[in-house]
């Protein structure tokens, strides 16, 4: 039943509904990358550059929303930070995701050539709140990942 001929008879109906992906920059390195990828014409992704002390996510398109409401509507929250341990927002966002059982992915960008100490500081902040961690040498990877996840 798994011949090339039989493969033609797979049901062609859609097998999924769009997922909502939230991308949040946790520091300046993250913001640079998030701004770059936000212009990619995504159908199912929203991009934020920071989180204010009152719990408002600051949207790139000027659309702010409370962290709680955004997480409530999201299927995946992607946290983006550079090395050096400036991802101080990670616990607040991570706790909100944990409370709502929303999947999280932590991205360390700009990691090529940095010291292990600098990388370690950011990992210490991201790991407790990320169910998946990615350390990519080039920033284009986040866009590829989002395309693969149908964002």
């Amino acid at each position: 039943m798994n011949s090339a001929a039989e493969a033609r008879f797979r049901v062609q109906a859609p097998n999924s509904k769009p997922r909502a992906i939230t991308v949040v920059a946790l520091d300046a390195d993250g913001e640079r990358v998030v701004r770059d990828i936000s212009s990619g014409g995504w159908q199912n992704a929203r991009f934020f550059t920071s989180l204010s002390p009152d719990g408002t996510l600051i949207g790139i398109a000027g659309t702010n929303i409370t962290l709680t409401d955004e997480v409530e509507a999201s299927d995946l929250v992607v946290l983006v930070a550079g090395p050096g341990g400036r991802a101080d927002l990670a616990p607040r966002i991570g706790e909100a995701c944990s409370a709502k059982r929303v999947m999280t992915t932590g991205f360390v960008v700009g990691a090529a050539g940095v010291s292990d100490t600098e990388l370690s500081k950011t990992l210490a902040q991201l790991r407790p709140w990320s169910l998946m961690v990615v350390i990519a040498n080039n920033d284009e990877y986040i866009a590829d990942m989002m395309a693969a996840l149908r964002a």
Partner: peptide
């Protein structure tokens, strides 16, 4: 899904 990042990368 997110845990497929090894495959995606």
């Amino acid at each position: 899904v997110s845990t497929d990042n090894g495959i995606i990368m």
